[in-house]
C-alpha cells in the first residue's frame, strides 16, 4: 500500500518535470557551475587550474573591483528610492478614468518599452557637453555646459537620472493595478468618516499599497544592482572608473581579459550582495507589517 502510494506520488512528478528540467538546466546548473568556476583560475579558451578561494582573496584587494562595488551601491541608493516613490505619486495622480490620465499613463510607460541602446542614445544627445540639449540650453542662458558624463562626481547621478526615466513605467503600472484593487466603498466609508485627502492617502491608500511598495523596492533593488548597459554604452565605465558597476567589471574581466574564473568569483559576490539586500528588505518590511 505504502509502495503503491509512493510510486503514485513519483508519477505525479511527471507533471512538473518539464519545468523542473528547464529550471535545473538553465538556472541551477549555470549557478552551480559558476560557483565551481569561481574556484579555478580559468581562461576563456584555455585550461583551468584549481586555486580554491584565491580569486576571492584577489577581489577583496582589487581596487578596481572595490570601486565598482562602491559605484554599484551608490547607484542603487540613487535609483531605488526614486523608482519606488515617484511611480507611486504618478499612479496616485493618474488613477482616474478620464482621457488625459490615459494619455499620461501611456506617455510615462512609453520609455519602458525602449531598449537600452535607444535610451542611451537619447540621453547622450541630451547630456553630452558638445552640442547636447542640456549644454545648448545652458549656453543660451549664458552659462557653461555641465559635464554630466565626464565629471566623476556627476556621472553616476546622470546614470541614475537616465535609469529612473527609463524604468518608471512598470512600477507605475504595478501601483495602478494595486490601486484599482482597493474597493471603492472603503473610500466612500472614509468620506462618511470625515477623512480629508491627505488622511485618506495616509490611512487608507498607502497601507493598502504596502505590499506593492515592498515588491517594487525589492524588484528595483535586484534590477539596479545589475546595472550594465547604460555605462557600457555611454561612458565605458569612465571617467577613471567612476561609472563602472560590478557587472561591467565582470564583463571586462571575463570577456576582455578572458579571466573567467576571476569574473565568476565577482559574479558570486554580486549574487551574494543581491540576495542579502533582498532578504534584509524582506525581513525588515515583513516584521514592520506584523508589528503594525
Amino acid at each position: 500500500m505504502g509502495a503503491r502510494a509512493a510510486s503514485r506520488q513519483w508519477s505525479n512528478a511527471l507533471f512538473v518535470a518539464p519545468y523542473l528540467i528547464a529550471y535545473l538546466c538553465l538556472l541551477i546548473f549555470p549557478l552551480v557551475s559558476g560557483m565551481g568556476l569561481s574556484l579555478f583560475k580559468a581562461d576563456l579558451f584555455g585550461g583551468r587550474e584549481f586555486v580554491g578561494l584565491e580569486n576571492f582573496a584577489r577581489l577583496f584587494k582589487d581596487t578596481v573591483f572595490l570601486q565598482s562595488v562602491a559605484n554599484t551601491f551608490y547607484f542603487v541608493l540613487l535609483t531605488v528610492p526614486p523608482l519606488t516613490v515617484i511611480p507611486l505619486f504618478l499612479a496616485l495622480l493618474l488613477n482616474r478614468s478620464d482621457r488625459t490620465a490615459a494619455i499620461f499613463r501611456g506617455v510615462f510607460f512609453s520609455s519602458s518599452v525602449l531598449s537600452v541602446t535607444i535610451v542611451t542614445l537619447i540621453w547622450r544627445m541630451i547630456l553630452m557637453t558638445e552640442g547636447g540639449l542640456a549644454a545648448n540650453i545652458r549656453h543660451a542662458m549664458g552659462f557653461d555646459a555641465i559635464p554630466f558624463l565626464s565629471d566623476p562626481n556627476l556621472v553616476m547621478i546622470s546614470m541614475a537620472i537616465i535609469t529612473v526615466w527609463w524604468c518608471l513605467g512598470l512600477p507605475m503600472m504595478l501601483y495602478l493595478s494595486a490601486l484599482q484593487q482597493v474597493p471603492q466603498d472603503i473610500y466612500e466609508a472614509a468620506e462618511l468618516d470625515n477623512s480629508g485627502w491627505f488622511r485618506t492617502l495616509w490611512s487608507i491608500t498607502l497601507p493598502a499599497l504596502s505590499r506593492t511598495v515592498i515588491l517594487v523596492a525589492i524588484f528595483q533593488c535586484v534590477l539596479q544592482f545589475q546595472l550594465f548597459g547604460q555605462p557600457q554604452l555611454i561612458t565605458q565605465g569612465g571617467p577613471n572608473g567612476a561609472s563602472r558597476p560590478i557587472v561591467l567589471f565582470i564583463f571586462e574581466v571575463g570577456f576582455r581579459r578572458w579571466d573567467i574564473g576571476y569574473a565568476a568569483a565577482a559574479s558570486q559576490i554580486l549574487f551574494g550582495i543581491i540576495l542579502l539586500a533582498t532578504l534584509i528588505q524582506y525581513f525588515v518590511t515583513s516584521r514592520k507589517q506584523v508589528s503594525s
Binding site: 466603498d185 472603503i186 466609508a189 468620506e191 468618516d193
Partner: peptide
C-alpha cells in the same frame, strides 16, 4: 459633503478598513 450630513451608512460589503483593528475602524471617524 457626506461627512457633514450627520448620517452613518452600513455598507453591503461592510467596507471595513482592512489594515485597522476593530477598535480603530470604529474610532477613525
Amino acid at each position: 459633503p457626506p461627512g457633514q450630513r450627520g448620517v452613518a451608512l452600513v455598507f453591503q460589503n461592510y467596507a471595513l478598513y482592512p489594515h485597522m483593528s476593530v477598535a480603530d475602524n470604529m474610532a477613525f471617524g
